[in-house]
Amino acid sequence: KYKEAKESFQRFLENHEKMTSTTRYKKAEQMFGEMEVWNAISERDRLEIYEDVL
C-alpha cells in the first residue's frame, strides 16, 4: 500500500499542470500540503521522488 502511495505521488507530480522544473519543493508543499496524496508518504520519500521527477 505504501508503494502505491509513492507511485501515486510520482504520477501526481508528473501530471500536475502547476509543476514545472522551476517549482521549488517548499512552494509545492504550500500548494499541495493539505492533500492526501502529499501526506500519504514520509517527507524523506516525498523529497526523493520530487527530486527524481524534476
Rank of each mutant, 00 (worst) to 15 (best):
G33N: 14
K27T: 13
S21T: 10
A5K: 13
E43W: 04
E29I: 00
R46V: 00
F32V: 04
F12R: 08
I49M: 03
S8I: 13
Y2E: 12
R46H: 00
T20E: 08
E34I: 01
R11A: 07
K3A: 00
T20F: 08
A28I: 01
V37E: 14
T22H: 11
M35S: 11
E48R: 13
M35G: 06
L13D: 10
T20R: 08
M35H: 06
K18H: 12
R44C: 09
H16Y: 03
S42K: 11
E34S: 14
Y25K: 02
V53Q: 13
H16D: 10
E34D: 14
M19K: 06
F9S: 07
K1W: 00
Y25P: 02
K6H: 02
Y50W: 13
K3F: 00
M31C: 00
R24C: 15
D45A: 03
E7C: 06
Q10K: 15
Y2N: 12
R11D: 09
E34R: 12
K27V: 15
L47D: 00
T22R: 10
E36P: 12
M35T: 13
R44G: 12
E7F: 07
D45L: 00
N39W: 00
R44D: 09
A5Q: 11
I41Y: 00
M19L: 12
K6F: 03
N39C: 03
D52R: 15
S21C: 12
Q30C: 05
M35L: 14
D45Y: 02
T22V: 11
E14P: 03
E51N: 13
F9H: 03
K3M: 04
N15T: 09
A28Y: 01
A28F: 04
E36V: 10
H16S: 13
G33M: 06
L13V: 09
Y25E: 01
T23W: 11
W38E: 08
E34Q: 14
E36W: 01
R11E: 12
E51P: 09
A40W: 11
E4T: 07
E48H: 07
K18G: 11
V37R: 00
G33R: 06
R11L: 10
M19Q: 06
Q10I: 10
K26I: 12
Y25Q: 00
K3L: 05
W38I: 03
Q10S: 08
A28M: 07
R24P: 15
F12T: 06
E48C: 08
W38C: 11
Y50G: 08
W38Y: 07
M19Y: 02
K3T: 10
G33F: 00
A40M: 10
Q10P: 02
R46S: 03
E36S: 10
L13E: 10
V53R: 11
